[in-house]
């Protein structure tokens, strides 16, 4: 089945980063809608809510300062409703060990957040296109790992 568009959820608390996402996503023809959350637990509440909305892709900011980041990530990954949802972790500077850990704890994609808008838009679009193939074709989501 060809869906033709993607539903995104972005967990981000910084205003300028939100704007960056909004601008890049507005330029993409692949996306149908996007919703922001301040924290991952808000996302989980939303998914558990009566409307039962499930995003196709979750963009989750990796904040090394957040003590339980990996635990939170694992909680998101283990949600039954999100078994076919792809998780993209992004950060502008994380250690190699932490990046590896995000994959171990269930991330599908790690995006090294570019510093310029053009590059950011380009990388996001590339990620959306690859994720779209995984969502639309008979490819193994469980083993889908991609590092930009």
């Amino acid at each position: 089945m060809i869906r033709g568009f993607l539903k995104l959820a972005v967990v981000e608390d910084d205003k300028s980063s939100k704007k960056l996402f909004q601008k890049a996503i507005n330029e993409s023809t692949l996306v149908a809608g996007m919703i922001f959350f301040q924290q991952s637990n808000e996302l989980l509440e939303y998914i558990d809510g009566p409307q039962n909305h499930v995003p196709d892709i979750i963009f989750l900011k990796l904040d090394p300062m957040v003590k339980n980041f990996l635990k939170d990530l694992r909680q998101v990954r283990k949600q039954h409703q999100l078994r076919n949802t792809l998780i993209v972790i992004y950060s502008s500077g994380a250690s190699e060990q932490l990046i590896e850990d995000t994959f171990v704890y269930g991330a599908n994609v790690y995006m090294d957040k570019p510093h310029t808008y053009e590059k950011f838009r380009e990388v996001v679009e590339k990620i959306l296109k690859i994720n779209f193939q995984y969502l639309e074709s008979n490819l193994n989501i469980e083993n889908f790992i991609y590092r930009t």
Binding site: R74, R77, K78, E100, F103, V104, Y105, G106, N143, I145
Partner: peptide, 10 residues
């Protein structure tokens, strides 16, 4: 290696 570790973690 990542998938092996993941299978033990998740």
């Amino acid at each position: 290696n990542i998938i092996q570790k993941r299978n033990r973690t998740l």
